[in-house]
């Protein structure tokens, strides 16, 4: 474990706590894309299936369970506790294309034709684009609550921090996971516009508003 990976994982945990905190204190899911949350649940379930048969470490085991459970809890909060029709109207990104595209790419680029490997590759492609419905929603409304922007920032930071982690692992361990690195860079690039606006407005104490 290196510092980039630990910092990335902490940032990922923070993003989830920020989101749950926001939903529970405001008792509202306004501005949060259900579709993005649904995609993350699918990402975690398809990627962490191996928690049942592959032991890496207690850390990895606990984190995998946490990510699966918290994503399902968020889905539950959004669907059953604080559901509103206004939110659904703005959440219109056609995720079927993301799912289908990730499926096709996983079948082409998987390292091995086993169910778990194809699902693992699928989860990487899907994660790289899972934030798009959320960013699309932000684009439509033109502004966001500060907590929502902190959530998106922490989530983007997590993948951005994995990039130096992969450099480190390549030089220190000779390890290079082509699929993870490629999809991770794509994901970080998708966040780049958002990072720019976040830096220019939210970091300076202004509201998040798109020009």
């Amino acid at each position: 474990m290196n510092v980039f990976r630990i910092a990335g994982d902490i940032s990922h945990l923070a993003s989830i706590f920020i989101l749950i905190h926001q939903i529970t204190i405001t008792k509202s899911v306004q501005g949060i894309s259900f579709k993005t949350q649904l995609l993350y649940s699918i990402v975690f379930i398809t990627r962490y299936l191996d928690v049942t048969f592959r032991w890496v470490s207690l850390y990895i085991f606990a984190m995998k369970l946490f990510f699966i459970a918290s994503s399902l809890y968020i889905i539950f909060l959004m669907r059953n506790r604080f559901r509103t029709s206004e939110v659904t109207k703005l959440d219109t990104f056609p995720i079927v294309y993301l799912l289908a595209g990730s499926g096709v790419l996983a079948l082409i680029f998987t390292y091995d034709y086993s169910i778990t490997e194809v699902l693992w590759a699928f989860s990487l492609f899907l994660e790289s684009v899972a934030i798009l419905p959320q960013l699309f929603m932000l684009q439509r409304t033109g502004q966001a609550k500060t907590l929502t922007t902190h959530y998106i920032f922490a989530l983007g930071l997590y993948r951005a921090l994995y990039i130096p982690n992969w450099f480190y692992r390549y030089f220190a361990e000779g390890r290079f996971d082509t699929l993870a690195v490629f999809t991770g860079i794509v994901q970080t690039l998708i966040y780049s516009d958002f990072f720019w606006v976040y830096y220019n407005r939210v970091m300076k104490g202004l509201n998040f508003e798109l020009p």
Binding site: V56, F176, D177
Partner: peptide, 10 residues
């Protein structure tokens, strides 16, 4: 690359 099949990251 055999170690690519061992997924030890989140």
């Amino acid at each position: 690359n055999a170690n690519q099949l061992f997924h030890d990251e989140l």
